[in-house]
């Protein structure tokens, strides 16, 4: 017995919104969690602005990563770009071996502290699964299908938009889902290099030895990731049905 995906997604979304807005009213619960702390609700920022900032960092980086990633995947599968296919697919698969936190850390010597290096590392790392899945999706389209489209008099651009992209769409979408999931996690660690995200309460709690702060940040990060993942599930199930 399984709930339809849009029910589960809306449920998670409601919980996420309620938790973001209502976390500050759970003081009694957090007093029980962290007895002996003078302050048990993270005060330096309100949770809503941290949530919005976290989501917009990931959203911005993902839009750039999708544009560049899908673009690259398309370019190297055209006849004139095919020379670059082995190199690009090598970079995409070896790059995914690199731990995200290491990529994040290596952006600091390049760009210093703040949101900039976080966005750069989210883009760089987010590209890899998207490129890889775009290549796999377009590569899986049967040559016979393309031949018959060409036989029907379609141009190269028409074949790309009306045949290859629709057929590869689900695989590309799965790549985007992986990319966004990883980026939500990496953005949280981005707190350590000065980006304002939901990682802030977690880190503040770890530094000040305040379990309540850490728990508040962790709950919201977890909820954000699960909600976004369920939303992707809805999009995927809609697009498979078509």
């Amino acid at each position: 017995m399984k709930l339809p995906s849009h029910w589960s997604a809306s449920g998670w979304l409601v919980v996420l919104i309620m938790a973001t807005l209502g976390m500050q009213y759970l003081e009694r619960f957090f007093r029980w969690v962290a007895p002996g702390q003078r302050q048990v609700i993270y005060q330096r920022d309100d949770f809503l602005s941290l949530m919005l900032n976290h989501a917009s960092l990931v959203g911005l980086a993902s839009i750039v990563a999708i544009t560049i990633g899908v673009g690259t995947g398309i370019l190297v599968t055209r006849a004139w770009g095919r020379d670059f296919l082995p190199t690009v697919s090598l970079i995409a698969s070896v790059g995914q071996t690199f731990p995200p936190v290491a990529v994040l850390a290596l952006c600091v010597p390049l760009l210093g502290f703040g949101a900039g290096p976080v966005i750069l590392s989210l883009i760089l790392y987010g590209l890899l699964p998207i490129v890889r899945n775009t290549l796999a999706g377009i590569g899986d389209v049967e040559p016979a299908v393309i031949e018959s489209a060409r036989g029907m008099g379609m141009s190269g651009t028409q074949i790309l938009w009306q045949v290859e992209i629709p057929l590869a769409f689900n695989v590309i979408l799965a790549g985007i889902r992986t990319s966004v999931t990883i980026n939500i996690a990496t953005a949280a660690i981005g707190s350590t290099i000065g980006a304002r995200t939901l990682g802030d309460p977690v880190i503040a709690g770890l530094i000040n030895n305040n379990i309540a702060y850490t728990l508040q940040g962790a709950i919201l990060i977890g909820l954000l990731a699960v909600t976004v993942d369920r939303l992707f599930e809805v999009v995927q199930s809609v697009s498979t049905r078509r």
Binding site: T181, V202, L215, A218, I221, A225
Partner: peptide
């Protein structure tokens, strides 16, 4: 099969910093 794989992939969705943070309170 389905429930087990569902639970395990749910774990994979939770960001590392969040899972570490969630485990601290019960363990302490």
């Amino acid at each position: 099969q389905e429930p087990v794989l569902n639970v395990l992939s749910f774990f994979q969705t939770i960001p590392s910093l969040a899972l570490f943070g969630l485990l601290i309170a019960p363990l302490s």
